[in-house]
Design a binder for these strands. Structure first.
Lengths: 223, 223
DNA sequence: ATTGAACGTGAGTGATAGCTCGTATTATAG
DNA sequence: CTATAATACGAGCTATCACTCACGTTCAAT
């Protein structure tokens, strides 16, 4: 796993940019179709309609291809979450959570096969800014959403609650997309249940709008 | 990915059994230490103190090694869940869920590195009976637990609820073990929060022990 | 003690795949 | 138009690795 020396050379002319795009598209096609093991640089170059040499002008090694694909994919989902958060700003907790879950799910359903390989088979490429850290902007925004609805939610450690929310949604969406469960369970059901799951967690120990109950102590003791 | 022709030959003598164990241990060490890419059959044999030939007498190919490791790992966790379920049989929902989460977490913490590679980097080996299906016994038992506590829980589609419970616990434990979150969040906190998450979901829409409220309709509509 | 099966060995083979480099082509600058 | 840089090419080098096989060793049974 060595993807330092990022882009070996930046494409300056438009045809070079097209070459890079073609390479990335080909890599994505092969990856989502036949998996990582079947993805050789020669094959990528061939499918892209360029030569291996061209490939290595823009990507220092094979792993850099995966990294680039990862970044592109991360950006897409990040943007969908961003849109969802912006669209529901000021709305109710339920509205915001619903939008988040749906955005996440739809983002992952854009290209489930590619997502599957990228996130399930090769999650360890380019550790620095991938996924968890990539959501930093989103993370902060979700935290402030929870802060705004503080009186309605049970967990008072907002960092923990934010982490749980993001992790749970991501994990459940991931699971639903990666290995769809047995027949009778639909994606729509899981989507709805995920929303209830998160809302159930956030609402735990909050009797509608009354006083805070002393059920709090059974929650995560601070270090 | 070809791991048909399961064990090429079964170890009949005790020294052969020891050889197989040594090979599996070596494979686990290399896998958890340096990852799949660094695991060559020659290196495994060397670390195990046997020759490559011996390795290929019991494992038809490299992938069979991974599969065997997967199965071993799956059995371990499965047994811990089994113990937890048996020990808390007849207890309250909270007790059972707590035991399940703890068992799952502790099972994954036995060898986080190995688990990381096995479940995060190579989850696609031996699809037939791994993980999801492997939990079938546990799945049924958890479903019956939910059935026994039916009056206390909100979700009435027990298949869905069981799926959500298992998936959520697994995913959150997984996340906590695989990429431990930022500094201020401890494993213990996540463990507790996971319990609350699941209980929050199960308890959603259930006002302690009174009549069923008509809040039900916002739940996942049946197909 | 003998024999045959189980077990173990490790140099070698074949194939694959990542990557280089000398060369050819195309674009931009002056 | 010329010069120089950018882009593109692709045969081939090199290294690695999964896997084989012909041969030696140890066990268990008769």
């Amino acid at each position: 796993m060595k993807q330092i020396e990022r882009p070996r050379k930046l494409p300056r002319q438009q045809r070079a940019q097209a070459t890079v795009e073609a390479i990335l598209d080909a890599a994505a096609r092969i990856l989502s179709g036949d998996g990582y093991a079947a993805m050789s640089t020669n094959r990528v170059a061939e499918l892209a309609g360029v030569s291996v040499g061209s490939l290595y002008q823009y990507f220092p090694n094979k792993d850099a291809l995966i990294t680039a694909l990862h970044e592109r994919h991360g950006r897409e989902i990040h943007e969908m979450l961003d849109v969802a958060l912006t669209a529901t700003a000021g709305g109710s907790l339920r509205e915001i959570i619903t939008a988040l879950v749906q955005a996440s799910l739809h983002g992952h359903l854009l290209d489930p096969q590619l997502h599957r390989v990228l996130e399930a088979e090769l999650p360890f490429f380019d550790p620095p800014k991938s996924e968890s850290d990539d959501h930093l902007g989103v993370h902060a925004r979700i935290r402030s959403v929870l802060e705004a609805h503080r009186e309605q939610i049970g967990p008072q450690d907002l960092d923990l609650a934010t982490y749980m929310l993001i992790t749970t949604v991501q994990a459940l969406v991931h699971a639903a997309v990666i290995d769809p469960p047995a027949a009778p369970l639909s994606t729509a059901q899981i989507e709805a249940a995920t929303i209830e799951m998160v809302l159930g967690y956030l609402g735990a120990g909050v009797p509608s709008t009354s006083v805070r109950t002393p059920t709090r102590d059974r929650h995560h003791a601070r270090l």
